[in-house]
C-alpha cells in the first residue's frame, strides 16, 4: 500500500484477539505495550510488517500481533527472519526471542546476521532464565544463582549479550528495560530507523522463577546513557 494512502494506525490496531498468557507481573507486558506504541509512532502497516520468533515465553509475542507473525523453531528465528527480509525487502522485520533461545541453541546465528548486516531488528527479552520450561539456568543466569538445574548455585559465568554483539560488529547495539516502557518505545523506534542489523537487549524480569524483587534490583542497577555518550553515527 502506498504510504500516502495508508490508513492512520493506532496502538490498538496492532493487537490480535489473543490475550497474553504470561504470568502476572511478567516484564514482557511492559515491553508489549511499548512495542505497540512504537508501531504506532512508526506508522507501520500490517501488510508490510513481520514479527518472527523462536520458542520461549517471549516468543509467544507474535501471537499477540495483527501483523504477519511467525512462531518458529527453537533458536532459529534469525535464519527465518533473514529469509523473510530477503524475499520481501520492503517488509519491516522483527526477530523476537529470549536469552535461552537466542544465546544458547540459537547463538551460532547471531554473528552471521550481524556480519551480513541484515536489515532486521533483533530483540531479546532477557529474563536470565528458561521460564517456559519452568526455571532452568540460561546463558544469562548470574553466577551463583540457584535454579532447578543449578542446585548449588550457577557455576557458569553470566553471558554478556551487549559485549558479544559489539564484538560481532553489529551496526546497532542497545539495551533497555521493560520497567521503563517509554524508553523501550524510543529504542525500538531508533532500532527500526537504523539501516542495518539492529540488536536490542530488553531487561525483562521473570517474577516467577527469578523473584518478585527483580524489577527493583534492576531499577537500582541501571543508568541512562546521557548525551555525552557518543554511540557512533
Amino acid at each position: 500500500m502506498n504510504q500516502s494512502t495508508a490508513p492512520k494506525m493506532s496502538a490498538r490496531d496492532y493487537k490480535s484477539d489473543l490475550k497474553p498468557i504470561w504470568c502476572p507481573g511478567c516484564g514482557n507486558f511492559g515491553f508489549l505495550n511499548a512495542f505497540y506504541k512504537a508501531f504506532e509512532a512508526l506508522q507501520l502497516q500490517l501488510e508490510n510488517t513481520a514479527v518472527c520468533s523462536g520458542i520461549g515465553c517471549s516468543s509467544r509475542l507474535p501471537g499477540y500481533m495483527k501483523t504477519y507473525a511467525f512462531n518458529g523453531v527453537h533458536g532459529r528465528v534469525l535464519p527465518f527472519a533473514t529469509g523473510v527480509k530477503m524475499s520481501r525487502p520492503e517488509t519491516t522485520v522483527f526477530a523476537i526471542g529470549g536469552d535461552g533461545d537466542g544465546f544458547s541453541i540459537g547463538a551460532g546465528h547471531i554473528g552471521h546476521a550481524a556480519r551480513k548486516n541484515i536489515n532486521i531488528t533483533y530483540i531479546v527479552l532477557d529474563n536470565n532464565i528458561y521460564g517456559l520450561t519452568k526455571g532452568q539456568a540460561s546463558p544469562t543466569t548470574p553466577l551463583g544463582v540457584k535454579t532447578k538445574t543449578t542446585f548449588d548455585g550457577n557455576m557458569g559465568m553470566q553471558f554478556n549479550p551487549v559485549r558479544m554483539l559489539i564484538a560481532y560488529k553489529a551496526s546497532f547495539v542497545a539495551r533497555t528495560f521493560s520497567g521503563d516502557p517509554k524508553h523501550v518505545q524510543q529504542i525500538i523506534i531508533d532500532a527500526v530507523n537504523h539501516n542495518g542489523f539492529s540488536f536490542v537487549e530488553v531487561l525483562s524480569p521473570c517474577v516467577t522463577f527469578r523473584g518478585k524483587d527483580q524489577f527493583k534490583l534492576i531499577r537500582d542497577k541501571v543508568r541512562y546513557l546521557d548525551g555525552k555518550h557518543n554511540a557512533g553515527k
Binding site: A174, I218, H229, G232, K233
Partner: peptide
C-alpha cells in the same frame, strides 16, 4: 577499532551499572 567501539566495550563491561540506551552504532554498509 573505532574510538566509540572502545567506549562501547567499556560500557558493556561495566556489570555493576547496567547502561540503558544506544550503546554502539556504526555507519551501515547497506
Amino acid at each position: 577499532m573505532l574510538g566509540n567501539e572502545l567506549e562501547a566495550f567499556d560500557i558493556a563491561n561495566d556489570e555493576k551499572e547496567l547502561a540503558l540506551g544506544v550503546i554502539y552504532k556504526k555507519p551501515s554498509h547497506l
